[in-house]
Design a protein around this nucleic acid. Structure first.
Length: 124
DNA sequence: AGTATGACTCATT
DNA sequence: AAATGAGCCATAC
């Protein structure tokens, strides 16, 4: 009974239906250690499609609705910029979360980003 | 059902 | 070095 189009605006609370790709993304993100960060491209690459970085972004968009929670603040773009901060409840939340984990953030960019970079393709 | 868009990235200009 | 085009593919309208 999952009509393909039911839900219309399905609050994704039901996300557990068959979002294989998305679930893989969330699974990887949840394994990022606190105080470390990774990129959309790195996740996409680990999942076998580097060029699908945009899909990782979409997955993160839905990450707010899934369980267990996904530490979305640990995913930034390849420059270490907090490109997704606008999607948090407040414009500064993403930065604050990262700072709580011991990272330095200046001008929406992670300081020494490369040093804290965590690559699933290498670590996982 | 077709078009537009996006929390991206890379190559080319 | 900055701007542009292209690939990617699921959602939204």
């Amino acid at each position: 009974m999952k009509k393909k189009n039911d839900a219309g605006k399905l609050p994704i609370g039901d996300a557990s239906r068959h979002y294989t790709f998305f679930e893989n993304v969330w699974d990887v993100v949840r394994q990022i250690p606190a105080g470390r960060v990774t990129t959309y491209g790195a996740i996409a690459e680990y999942l076998g499609a580097r060029s699908s970085a945009r899909m990782v972004g979409w997955a993160m968009n839905q990450a707010h609705y899934v369980q267990p929670p996904v530490p979305a603040q640990r995913v930034v773009n390849r420059n270490g910029i907090l490109s997704g901060k606008a999607h948090f409840s407040t414009p500064t939340l993403m930065q604050e979360l990262l700072q709580q984990e011991g990272l330095q953030v200046e001008n929406d960019t992670i300081v020494d980003f490369k040093i804290h970079l965590w690559l699933p393709v290498e670590e996982l």
